[in-house]
């Protein structure tokens, strides 16, 4: 019996550690992943916004995708030149493999030229989304600022 009790204690502690690590990763803004080839977003049916686009990969069985979608939708509605495109991984398995996406939601922050500048995965908060926007190079922001409508 002692062995089982020890096993359970180890299991609970391990689960707690995993929970802390997992929670801390949610929506954290990370550096872009090096992708071997330029991505032709348009051919995948993803129309990029002028300045920056949140490209969100979602799934129907993903609860966190819904709240992330609401956060990004709200943010882009209030920011000119910033777009939000949500796609189902089922429809874009090739793109998902090319981009190295492993979980949903994964959000790629893509600049106007189609380059990934940051990525986030897991539930994205409004603060994290704004933090990701600040990663877009100043040049791209300025170019948009001049032509802002």
């Amino acid at each position: 019996m002692l062995g089982q009790v020890i096993a359970l204690v180890v299991l609970v502690l391990g689960t707690a550690a995993l929970g802390v690590w997992w929670s801390a990763r949610q929506g954290a803004v990370r550096a872009p992943r090096e992708t071997p080839v330029g991505i032709d977003w348009a051919s995948s049916g993803i129309a990029l916004a002028d300045r920056v686009t949140f490209v969100q990969f979602s799934a129907e069985v993903c609860a966190a995708c819904r709240s992330t979608s609401r956060v990004l939708g709200g943010l882009t509605g209030a920011s000119p030149g910033v777009g939000h495109r949500e796609v189902l991984v089922d429809d874009h398995l090739d793109l998902v493999r090319t981009l190295g996406v492993l979980r949903t939601p994964t959000v790629l922050v893509v600049d106007g030229g189609g380059r990934e500048v940051a990525r986030m995965s897991g539930v994205v908060s409004d603060t994290q989304a704004r933090q990701a926007l600040s990663r877009v190079p100043a040049a791209a922001v300025q170019a948009d600022g001049e032509g802002q409508s």
Binding site: A7, L11, V12, G14, T15, L18, G19, W22, S23, F57, A59, V61, C62, A63, A64, C65, V89, D90, L93, V96, R97, V101, L102, R103, T104, P105, G122
Partner: peptide, 28 residues
């Protein structure tokens, strides 16, 4: 039971969503 415990406990306490973590890996 231990493997299922990890998922159930994390779902209960921190809202881990298995569909978010596993579905794409299974599809891929």
């Amino acid at each position: 039971a231990a493997a299922a415990f990890v998922a159930a406990a994390l779902n209960a306490v921190v809202g881990l969503c298995l569909g978010c973590e596993l579905y794409l890996l299974l599809r891929r």
